[in-house]
Amino acid sequence: MARKDASIQRVTYNRGEKVTGALMSLPAIILLIAFLIIPIVYTIFYSLFQYQVVRPDSMEFIGLENYLEVFQTEEFYVALRNTFYFTVLVVPIQCVLALCLALLVRSRRRGVSIFRTMYFAPQVTSMVVIAVLWTVLYNSNANTGLINALLSTFGAGPVNFLGDPDVAMNAIIFMSAWQGAGYQMMIFLAGLQGIPEEQYEAASIDGAGRWAQFRYVTLPGLANTTKYVLMITIIQAMKLFTQPYIMTKGGPQNATRTLVYYIYEEGFQSGNFGFACAIATVFFVLVVIISLIVKKLTRTK
């Protein structure tokens, strides 16, 4: 069908179209080249150089040495592990939370939009606002930290949420899942609306209970939505920077230093541009590989 249309168009529009098409896409293409393609090329280019920001004149080609150094640096593996730890935990927690919230507010009852807004509220602020707020809420002193105050009424705590290397990343995960779930909830809600009501009716005539309906109607009906949600949540999680920057500065004892944070530190704070670009290239390749794996895994299902 599309093929046929195309051939008709070629007859009707041909000449002017070629020029107009190129001209119309030109501004975007120029911006694309200037601020995306060139930086990509330069990330790889700089990564092959010994390049200190303070001494731009003494740039020296060193081949793959930066990469060898990256893979021999303990700190890189710590950042890699932190990034994976965050991703592996936050993605399922946030997605399951989002799905539960979507199921809670899928009904068309009067006032449901108030509840939707409540669950979406952390999204309407911003990650910076939320991170600052939770830094205060997570305060290790039960007299000033709301969460420790709550724990103390149950006779627990106080927990040094952001100061204990074993706890800090978990604290960031909990907060991030809470902040982010509303977004995925909206996507799941749209997915739920796409499931025909008849399927539920048919299932309930067949005697399917609540759980069976969820298992055999809702979940399969949400397959495509889930794939998409997983994909964006994973990529989002791998880019973690704002929360550790505001809440822990990558600490305590590097427990929350992620790959992007490590790139920022090496590149912008220590000025090791070449080295930082090598980490950035590795980071980029990792994101591509992981998104391809996720795509493949979800396709076969």
């Binding site: 200037a34 330069y42 880019k239 790139i263 290239t281 980029f284």
Partner: peptide, 19 residues
């Protein structure tokens, strides 16, 4: 454009800054 639409910009911020 499709290939780059989910690219993490965080990976290219250093050269972008130099630019």
């Amino acid at each position: 454009i499709i290939a780059l639409s989910s690219m993490p910009v965080e990976a290219i911020l250093l050269p972008l800054y130099i630019e």
